[in-house]
Amino acid sequence: MSGTRPAGPLETALRVLFAVVLGVFFINLFAAMATVVVNSFAQTWFGGWWPSGFTTRWYGYADSQFAMVDVLRFTIVVTLAVAVLACLMGVPAAYVLARAQFRGKRVLLALYLLPMLMPPLTYGIPLASQLYRTQLAATLPGVILINLVPALPFVILVMTPFIEQLDPNVERAARTLGASPLQVFRRVLFPLLVPGILTAALLVVVRTMGMFELTFLVSGADTQTLVVALYTALFGAGIRPAQAVDALAVVYMLTTLTMLVVALRFVSPTQMVFRVRE
C-alpha cells in the first residue's frame, strides 16, 4: 500500500522520528536495566565505567537481609492464588455478561468497571483499615484479598469478549442432544474456555507481580511481595549496600520477565495492555 505513492517528506520525517524516539527510548531503558544487573555482581562500583571486580556474594547477602527466598515464595503463592480465585469468580460472571441480556446489565458493568477506573488508594486505604481491624492485614489472605479487587474485574473484561466470540449454537446443540448443564459445561464449554482462561490467568499473574500500591498498604514484615520488598529496600537506601538491593531487583526482574515470556506465548503484546472495548 505504501507502494502506491513515492515516499514524500512526511513519510521520511516520520521514519526518522520513529527511529529516533524508539532508539533513545530503548537504549536508555536497557542501559538502565543493565546497570542494575552489573551492579548486583559488583564488588564495589563508586565511579568509572565498570565495577572494580565481580562477586556473587550480594545474592546470599540479600537473602539473609531481605529473606529473599521467603519473599519469592510468598510472591508466587499470592500471584497464583489471586489468578485462580479471580478466574473462579470472574469467568462465570463474564459468561453471564456475554450471553444474557437483562435489565440492570449496565449497573453490573459499572460495578465491574469502576475498580479499574479508580485510583487504587481510594478503596485501598479504607479497605486496609478494615483489614487491620479484623486482623487480616499482614496475613496471606489479606494480601490476596486486596489484590483480587483489581484482578477480578480484569478477568471479567478479558473473558467477556472471548466468550462472545464462541458460538452459542455449540452449547445449544449439546443440550438438544440431551446433555445436562453440568455435562455441557464439562464436555463442551470448559474445553472451549481453556485458552481464554489461561490468557486471563497469566495476565493476572504478571499484573499482580508488579502491583505495588495495594500490596504495600497491607503487607507486614513476613508478608511482602518482591516489589514491596524492593521498594522498602530502596526507601531505606544507604542502610544496606546498593549491590544487595540490586540483587533483589534482579530476582524481581527475572521472576517477572519469566512470567512475561510465558504469557507472550499465548497473548500478543498489544493485548497485554488493557484495551477498553468499544
Binding site: 508488579g210 505495588f212 524492593l230 531487583a249 526482574m253 517477572t256 497485554m272 495492555v273
Partner: peptide, 11 residues
C-alpha cells in the same frame, strides 16, 4: 510496563 515503577526507579 511489566517491570513497573518500583524497578524503573531502582534502575
Amino acid at each position: 510496563v511489566t517491570l513497573g515503577p518500583v524497578f524503573i526507579a531502582d534502575a
